[in-house]
Amino acid sequence: MEPPEAIEQVSAGEADAAIIFRYDTLPHFLRIDETLHFEPLGADPLRLLVRRSSAIGKAYERNREPVDLTAAHAETWIAGCATCRANLLKLASRAGFQPDIRHSTDDYWATQNLVEMGMGVSLVPTLDTKIHVQDDLVACALRDADASRQVGILTRVHDARESLGLLRNELAETARHYLQPIPTVE
């Protein structure tokens, strides 16, 4: 389930824990109150998913330099879940444009298929690209430092059961292999 629904499940006691993501660009988008605890596991940078044959794809393949989000300002867009869509709108606004969102899906495979068919471009998490990116697509690194999400575990405050401690430890160990450390603010 998406983060808002997962938060509701943990808050209501329907679930003991949830792995959720959140965006620093949207600090108040998710309602995590004082009864819940979010423990970040790592950062998951976003990528711009484009067709390899597009101008952006060709340029990225040629030099492997991160691209600016503005490179896709004139493209049609495929948005994700409500949280991801809000993040896309925020990032695009900061970059000085309004994305022309024509499609919306929270299914990564459907997103790939839509991009492959030339229906638009999309922001996707790096984690999704570790599974598989179709041969005629490229997931371009982005230059924007805010183009990232935090992935973490959500539990109820003061829930100190041993099983949750073991879960946290296993998730933290796994996250070290797939997520980047979260930059510290000084």
Results as ranks from 00 to 15, higher is better:
residue 22 R to G: 01
residue 91 L to Y: 05
residue 176 R to M: 09
residue 4 P to T: 00
residue 121 V to G: 00
residue 16 D to H: 11
residue 129 T to H: 02
residue 34 E to N: 11
residue 33 D to I: 08
residue 2 E to I: 11
residue 76 T to L: 08
residue 147 A to Q: 03
residue 44 D to N: 12
residue 89 L to G: 03
residue 185 V to K: 13
residue 120 G to L: 04
residue 44 D to Y: 03
residue 186 E to Q: 14
residue 164 L to M: 11
residue 103 H to N: 10
residue 178 Y to P: 05
residue 71 A to P: 07
residue 72 A to K: 06
residue 78 I to R: 06
residue 2 E to L: 12
residue 120 G to R: 02
residue 27 P to Y: 06
residue 87 N to S: 13
residue 86 A to D: 07
residue 122 S to P: 06
residue 157 V to Q: 14
residue 27 P to S: 06
residue 182 I to P: 01
residue 173 E to D: 12
residue 155 T to V: 10
residue 58 K to M: 12
residue 43 A to V: 09
residue 154 L to N: 03
residue 5 E to D: 13
residue 116 E to C: 02
residue 91 L to M: 10
residue 63 N to E: 15
residue 179 L to I: 08
residue 179 L to K: 03
residue 45 P to S: 07
residue 100 D to P: 03
residue 77 W to Y: 08
residue 180 Q to R: 15
residue 22 R to D: 03
residue 131 I to R: 14
residue 38 F to G: 05
residue 120 G to S: 07
residue 131 I to Y: 10
residue 51 R to Y: 04
residue 135 D to T: 07
residue 102 R to P: 05
residue 62 R to F: 11
residue 115 V to R: 01
residue 58 K to S: 06
residue 60 Y to S: 04
residue 177 H to D: 12
residue 98 Q to F: 14
residue 39 E to T: 14
residue 145 A to I: 10
residue 154 L to R: 01
residue 163 S to E: 15
residue 39 E to H: 10
residue 165 G to D: 14
residue 108 Y to V: 12
residue 26 L to F: 07
residue 118 G to D: 07
residue 71 A to T: 09
residue 159 D to H: 09
residue 94 R to P: 05
residue 11 S to M: 08
residue 146 D to G: 08
residue 47 R to D: 06
residue 185 V to P: 05
residue 147 A to T: 01
residue 10 V to H: 02
residue 3 P to L: 02
residue 31 R to Y: 12
residue 118 G to Y: 07
residue 24 D to T: 08
residue 119 M to C: 04
residue 81 C to I: 12
residue 6 A to K: 05
residue 166 L to I: 14
residue 105 T to C: 10
residue 100 D to T: 09
residue 113 N to T: 09
residue 180 Q to E: 15
residue 94 R to V: 09
residue 140 C to Q: 03
residue 50 V to F: 06
residue 107 D to L: 05
residue 170 E to H: 13
residue 49 L to D: 01
residue 3 P to Q: 00
residue 120 G to E: 04
